[in-house]
Design a protein around this nucleic acid. Structure first.
Length: 701
RNA sequence: GGUCCGGUAGCUCAGUUGGUUAGAGCAGGGAACUCAUAAUUCCUUGGUCGGGGGUUCGAGUCCCUCCCGGACUACCA
């Protein structure tokens, strides 16, 4: 096969945060693919960059009282250090805040203009008069227009889940300055993606560029059936000043939205590399001889499978040969959590554990599917120890020292076909790597390790060495074992570059090409064996988790927590509190702004008895309850607690309800109140009960 | 509710266009070995392939239906 020209990218990490284990799934997946292609002799390049623009960076720089440039330079240095220590090797790591990127944005923008895809529309957005900036949704908080929950984010209510625009919030507040934002109208520029509908339909559905489940998802959600396509929404790609980014040349005062210039960063990073190496950008981005491969997470599917191909197509650049989409990382089956210590930064990992462990573990879990992968800590420890140390490195460790003096045999001995079996497995393993099915590749490789260990076991070099008569046989057995080991090291080289390097040193022959696994090494010296990998220690994993725990609960701004009856206050810092409850519920939903006693009295909370409770088949979350306030006074209430409570078990119990809530018409009938409950939602809902002695109708003071 | 993806051993998964008796690794049990970083090897327990129905000479695989889990999307709190 002639060498392929391959341009590979991983998504650009945002300059606002540090690299964590979740990010690493992608950068390692991509790095392994790139190393594999390079090992095969292809002209493969791995480009990435920091994604630096947008409001979040601007705001943070302001808060830290420094320039955006200083901030992003610092973050980029940290990112690059973390990547390097994990063995992630980019051919170029750039920044979206670069001259190259600005020029490319302008060029591509012009093409999109020329193609008649741009239109102007007025957009109403909240503006912070004190900070002098428009506010993205998440920088506005206020009272939910539906359920009146206070201090809710600008796009949806964490209490009731309603989605709305920030302009609909009651009493909105800017999180930047605390000022009341005003609604201002600004001109925004939109790309009419719908004009590219036919092209996108064809491109996404042809079966070559996307995993089947992704193509399916796009068809179902955005593109619609071919005979009845749904129009694609216009894409808002401008933001009015002030905005940290690039000003749009033909629209002064407006800046490209970060999602416009971010993917162009792939090309800009390529250009930087081309300029450094005397290469021609067009050979990489405008040539049919070059394949472009993007690796991304499923959260940014939309941008990379619709907007981005649309932009490339319009501007005359190569379309991606393939967009490889992976799922998220969970730890011990759950979302990474700061309080549980499973939200682990790359740096924290590096302080305690060997990067090879994680490289191998991810490889052993990754497939070409979009499924999430789970880092079960027990499995991580067991697998790394068993496979890497017990099966793989052990092969060298148990045979190298017997031939340290003699080196390898001059000719390759008869080995019952083991070497041939492993060399003919090359094609299948390569195919697995090529299709990103690394779990399959590692499985195959470990099967080879098993048979190699069995060979050593059967031929007992430790007995052979006892009798000088067997000297030749001893050398032959170890020559075989070390050659089998070397084949594995070659096959694992994309995953474990450091071990491949160490193997090269041990056997005096650097691993540089996949095909080295086809020819045994003979007649060469063997270096003194040094440990190649340390045993993974459970206590180190524990330490890493401990260190990742965010134990300090956020201190309430007021320093006071009002208790339910309103007449006591407690300073949380001086209390003897043996429970040490974690702070995430409070962090997830910060305290609402202070209210007066009169405010509180507006809400009439009453003890009520649930006299009936029934399922509503069509509702996913709701139960229909009849509450008695005593004396024949009843309320029909729809409560979103279906996932957490059995209706039968609720009947008869006392609860607290908001008895004077304005009735609300719902899909299934009129709801005349609320049952108060805590919890994040889903099955985690905890209905409040009064203590024994309370009777329906009593007011809660 | 809609769309989609899943459900195979205690755990993680493999099962190619339907084809002998459903597999691997780990974990569990038993033995061997002592070269190796207490690593390794051999033997072994364990499955109504989510349930039911259908097509077929034959179904883990194809079709229908139901149950369960997940993702997205919506009504809604």
């Amino acid at each position: 096969m002639p060498p392929r020209r391959l341009l590979v990218t991983a998504a650009l990490p945002y300059a606002n945060g540090h690299i964590h284990l979740g990010h690493l799934v992608e950068y390692l997946q991509t790095d392994i693919w790139v190393r594999f292609q390079k090992l095969r002799g292809h002209n493969c390049r791995y480009f990435c960059a920091d994604d630096t623009h947008g409001t979040a960076i601007m705001i943070r720089a302001r808060q830290e009282n420094r320039s955006e440039e200083e901030l992003i330079a610092e973050m980029q240095a940290a990112h690059e250090r973390d990547f390097a220590e994990f063995g992630i090797e980019f051919d170029n790591f750039g920044s979206t805040n670069s001259d190259e990127n600005r020029a490319l944005c302008a060029e591509i923008w012009q093409s999109i203009r020329d193609a008649g895809l741009v239109k102007e529309k007025d957009v109403e957005q909240l503006f912070d008069p004190e900070a002098g900036t428009f506010l993205a949704d998440r920088f506005v908080r206020g009272t939910c227009p539906k359920c009146a929950a206070t201090d809710q984010p600008g796009d949806n209510c964490s209490s009731c889940g309603t989605t709305y625009s920030p302009a609909e919030l009651v009493d909105p507040q800017s999180t930047l300055s605390g000022a009341t934002p005003e609604v201002r109208t600004a001109k925004h520029l939109f790309i009419e993606l719908e004009q590219l509908h036919a092209f996108l339909d064809e491109w996404t559905q042809c079966g070559e560029h996307l995993q089947p489940e992704i193509a399916n998802y796009l068809k179902g959600h955005f593109l619609g059936p071919t005979d009845k396509p749904e129009p694609l929404r216009d894409w808002d790609i401008s933001r009015p000043a002030p905005y940290f980014g690039f000003e749009i040349p033909d629209s002064p005062g407006n800046y490209w939205y970060v999602w416009f210039d971010a993917p162009i960063g792939y090309i800009a990073s390529t250009r930087q590399w081309c300029d450094k190496h005397g290469e021609n950008l067009d050979d990489w981005w405008k040539s049919d001889d070059c394949e472009v491969h993007h690796f991304i997470g499923k959260d940014i599917t939309y941008f990379h499978t619709l907007f981005w191909p649309g932009m490339l197509k319009t501007a005359g650049y190569s379309l991606p040969s393939k967009v490889h989409i992976h799922g998220f990382l969970t730890v011990d089956g759950e979302k990474m959590s700061k309080s549980k210590g499973t939200f682990v930064n790359a740096r924290t990992y590096l302080d305690h554990l060997d990067p090879s462990y994680l490289r191998y573990f991810y490889a052993s879990k990754l497939s070409s599917k979009v499924d999430d992968i789970d880092l079960s800590l027990d499995e991580f420890i067991a697998k790394v120890d068993k496979d890497l140390r017990g099966k793989f490195v052990n092969l060298a460790s148990r045979s190298a020292k017997f031939v340290a003096k003699t080196g390898l045999s001059a000719t390759y001995p008869k080995d019952e076909g083991l070497f041939d079996a492993a060399s003919s497995a090359a094609a299948e393993i390569a195919q697995a790597y090529e299709s990103c099915d690394y779990s399959k590749a590692t499985r195959k490789i470990m099967a080879l390790a098993d048979s190699a260990n069995a060979f050593v076991e059967a031929n007992k070099p430790w007995e052979l060495r006892k009798d000088p008569e067997n000297e030749q046989r001893l050398q032959d057995v170890c020559t075989i074992a070390l050659n089998l080991f070397r084949q594995l090291a070659i096959y694992l080289a994309p995953v474990l570059p450091k071990l491949a390097e160490q193997t090269g040193v041990l056997l005096g022959d650097p691993i540089t090409h996949w095909d080295q696994a086809q020819t045994p090494l003979v007649g060469t010296p063997v270096a003194k064996f040094k440990h190649m990998i340390q045993k993974i220690e459970e206590k180190d994993v524990q330490k890493m988790i401990e260190e990742s725990k965010e134990t300090t609960p956020p201190t309430p701004a007021s320093g006071e927590l009002a208790s339910a009856d309103g007449n006591e206050s407690a300073n949380t810092t001086t209390l003897n509190d043996p429970w040490k409850d974690p702070g995430d519920p409070l962090a997830a939903e910060p305290l609402a702004e202070e209210c007066t006693f009169d405010d509180f009295m507006k809400v009439d909370l009453r003890v009520a008895r649930i006299v009936s409770a029934e399922h509503i088949e069509e509702a996913r979350k709701l139960l229909k309850l009849q509450l008695s306030l005593g004396g024949g006074e009843y309320r029909q209430v729809f409560a979103g607690i279906k996932a957490a409570y059995d209706p039968e078990k609720l009947v008869g119990r006392l609860v607290v309800c908001v008895a004077n809530l304005a009735p609300r018409k719902m899909k299934f009938g009129l709801s005349e109140g609320m049952v108060v409950a805590s919890g994040p939602g889903g099955s985690e809902i905890y209905v409040l009960s009064p203590d024994e002695g309370a009777v329906p109708g009593q007011r809660v003071h």
